[in-house]
Structure formats: structure tokens, C-alpha cells
């Protein structure tokens, strides 16, 4: 039964290759997108850390995005 499942009556190579290529490509794009997102989050935090304390407070109070990025970044490390 397992042999039939793997060989798929002679079409196994085409079927498995199609699924493998699809999920491998999706996996690579997911990994690259995730890495880029984390890189930008890190760069944003670096830029934020360079600000003087008074400006940091202003940024955090005015920008929802900034406070959200800080929160997710702190959670992930």
C-alpha cells in the first residue's frame, strides 16, 4: 500500500515533484519574508534607541506603530 502511495501508478515522480517544489518555494519565501520583517524591526529599534529620552516618549505616545513594534520585538527576544 505504501509502495502504491509513493509510486502513484508510475506518476509518483511528477506528483511528488510538483508538491515538493510548491511547498519548498512557499517555505523559502516565508523564511525570507520573516527574516526581512525581523531585520526591519531590529533596525527600527536601533533607530529608536538613538533618540534622546524626551523624543522617545513623544514617539511612543504619538505612534501606535512604534509602541506595537517595541512590544512585539521585546516579546520575541
Amino acid at each position: 500500500m505504501i509502495e502504491n502511495f509513493v509510486l502513484m501508478n508510475g506518476y509518483g515522480l511528477y506528483v511528488w515533484l510538483s508538491f515538493a517544489i510548491t511547498f519548498l518555494a512557499c517555505g523559502i519565501i516565508y523564511y525570507k519574508t520573516y527574516k526581512t520583517l525581523k531585520k526591519y524591526e531590529k533596525e527600527f529599534i536601533k533607530e529608536f534607541d538613538r533618540l534622546p529620552e524626551s523624543e522617545k516618549k513623544v514617539v511612543l505616545s504619538k505612534s501606535k506603530v512604534a509602541s506595537q513594534v517595541l512590544a512585539t520585538y521585546n516579546k520575541s527576544i
Binding site: C26, I29, Y30, T33, Y34, T36, L37, Y40, E41, E43, F44, E47, F48, L51, E55, V58, V59, K62, S63, V65, A66, V69
Partner: peptide, 25 residues
Amino acid sequence: YCALILLMKYKTEIIRIKKKNIKRI
């Protein structure tokens, strides 16, 4: 999967723009 990648990419774009304008916030 598309929605996941789209949201992650959109989030990256927002952060990139906010980083560029951080001093103007």
C-alpha cells in the same frame, strides 16, 4: 499562505517607512 505573506510584507513596509520618518513623528 498568501494572506500571511501579504500581511508580513505590508507590516515590513510600514516599519520601513516609520523608521525613515521616526524623527518626524
